[in-house]
Amino acid sequence: MTSLFTQEIRLSKRHEEIVSKRVKSLQQMKSKFRDKNKEKASQIQAAEAAFERNLSLLKDIERAEKFLQARIQPFPPPEVVSLETLYWASVEEYIPKWEQFLLGRAPYPIGVENQNEAEKEAEVKAQQ
């Protein structure tokens, strides 16, 4: 019976040791978890600060780029703007004719108008 009693005491002490180790382990885990959360929060804060800094730098670069472009390329004179507008209007007018030619659905578009006019004039002269 005493051996059972001694065994019970030994098991009880062993149980206390295990419980105390478990408590220490849980405390260490909580401490590490808190440290990781603090580190993660610090990293998030640093990332947000870096994002804001990069955004500010990007805006500064865009402003500097606009400033330099304005200095390098001043606005063209009104005559040039007018000529550009007329040029692009004529390009847009001829796009369908060229498109049909390039797709192989129509003859070469340049000179066709003049050729048609010349043929009409020749027919008119022939009829007279």
Rank of each mutant, 00 (worst) to 15 (best):
A70D: 15
A106P: 07
A46N: 04
E92D: 13
L102I: 03
A64D: 14
N114G: 11
S31Y: 09
P96D: 04
R63I: 09
S90P: 01
N54Y: 05
E79H: 03
K59R: 15
A64L: 15
E39Y: 10
L57W: 12
F51V: 04
E65L: 10
L83H: 10
Y108H: 13
P96K: 00
E99K: 07
L58C: 11
P74Q: 14
K36R: 10
W98A: 00
V91F: 11
E117M: 06
A41H: 14
A122C: 14
E62G: 01
R34A: 10
P107C: 03
V91D: 05
Q100K: 14
E52L: 08
T85M: 05
T85F: 05
S82F: 05
P74A: 00
R34V: 02
N116I: 04
K125V: 08
V124G: 04
K97G: 01
I110M: 03
K66V: 08
I95M: 02
Q45C: 13
P109D: 05
S56N: 11
F67A: 12
A50L: 14
K38L: 13
V81S: 15
D60I: 00
A89M: 08
E48G: 06
V81W: 04
L102M: 14
A47G: 03
A118G: 08
E117L: 07
N114W: 01
V112N: 12
Q69D: 06
L83F: 09
P74T: 07
S90Q: 14
P74R: 02
E84Y: 08
S42D: 13
F67Q: 15
Q69W: 11
V80T: 08
K120R: 15
L68G: 05
F75C: 15
S82Y: 10
N114V: 05
K38M: 00
L86I: 06
E99I: 01
S82M: 11
E99D: 13
L55M: 09
P109T: 02
F101Q: 02
E123D: 11
F75W: 15
K36F: 10
M29W: 13
E99P: 00
A89Q: 06
R34D: 12
M29C: 12
A70Y: 01
I95G: 00
S42Y: 07
F33D: 10
K125L: 12
A41I: 12
L83D: 05
F33P: 07
R63Y: 03
A70C: 10
W88M: 12
V124Q: 12
V81C: 03
L102E: 10
T85K: 15
M29I: 13
R105H: 10
F33N: 13
P107T: 07
K32P: 00
I72A: 11
Q100M: 10
M29E: 14
V80S: 08
W98L: 07
D35F: 06
S82T: 14
S82H: 06
E117F: 01
F67S: 14
K38V: 07
L102A: 08
